[in-house]
Amino acid sequence: MKTLIAVLTVLSVIIAFWYAACLPMNIKGVLTEAERAGAEVTPAGAKERRDLGEFGLVLDNSFAIPATWAQDRPRLPAPHQVAQELWKTTGAMVLKGKMMSKRSLFYHGWVTLSATLLGFAIGTGLGILLAVGIVHSRVMDMSVMPWAIVSQTIPIIALAPMIIVVLYSIGVQGILPKAIISAYLSFFPVVVGMVKGLRSPDGMQLDLLRTYNASTNQGFWKLRLPASMPYLFASLKIGIAASLVGAIVGELPTGAVAGLGARLLGGSYYGQTVQIWSALFAAAILAACLVALLGLIERSVLKRMGMGA
């Protein structure tokens, strides 16, 4: 309860700050528009105002304050503008029965989400396989593991534009290139986490299985795999967030066709700030939902395995 109050306070402070920040950010644009519409602006002329401080302008032209929260293409859109745009491109579209139209964020969100999920599935599957290989083979452990760790310090995302173009030139397009980038980004966190998890049973537990005369296979299915679950879920959460980033960045070089990344890029080409912000929030909500969903699965799986807290 105390936490809830604190969180709500912080959130309202952030929103209040956001509204306040709209004033200095948007005032110059608003004043230029107001002057064109024939209003008295001090000082007159956009040139005179260019080098003046934003805060002084706000104080001198207090009549323009409401307009800073209602511009068409503001430098910083107010929270309610973003919320309206979000509603207009999601809920309102659904009510009109055009849920999958090209202007709907559901459509763009689904384009990104499907690439994310496909990539995540590929990346996680391969990651777990490699981790199993690493745990069971000394050679693989010693040769591959250092590179898997080093590769986490490399900005892999720099490869994204190239992967898209190369795959396009050999005739692969659509969802797969983006999914490959997603898979690549979620691959290494899963490998590293899963290796740690599969190694987590201590000597005592491994010895116990040996006294039962358990085969390597049985040891894997009955001890190592269950023991690795908490580690797996921790890295899955990192992996899915990375996958989403990968899918979004993967949409950039294709030139803004569909998807949340395309909305970001399109918005930045045409100065549609409200569109950028709503795409950003849609991506944030999507990421939060995915992580929360994994958290739920984690909780129920761990609980059924007797590890729930």
Binding site: T3, A6, V7, L8, T9, V10, L11, I14, K237, A241, L244, V245, I248, V249, L260, L264, L265, G267, S268, T273, I276, W277, A279, L280, A283, A284, A287, A288, V291
Partner: peptide
């Protein structure tokens, strides 16, 4: 108040703020 918000934001695709 800030820690849950920070934890939440840390998981978001922040690269998306780049165009802004």
């Amino acid at each position: 108040g800030l820690l849950p918000v920070g934890n939440f934001v840390a998981a978001l695709p922040i690269v998306g703020t780049a165009p802004i």
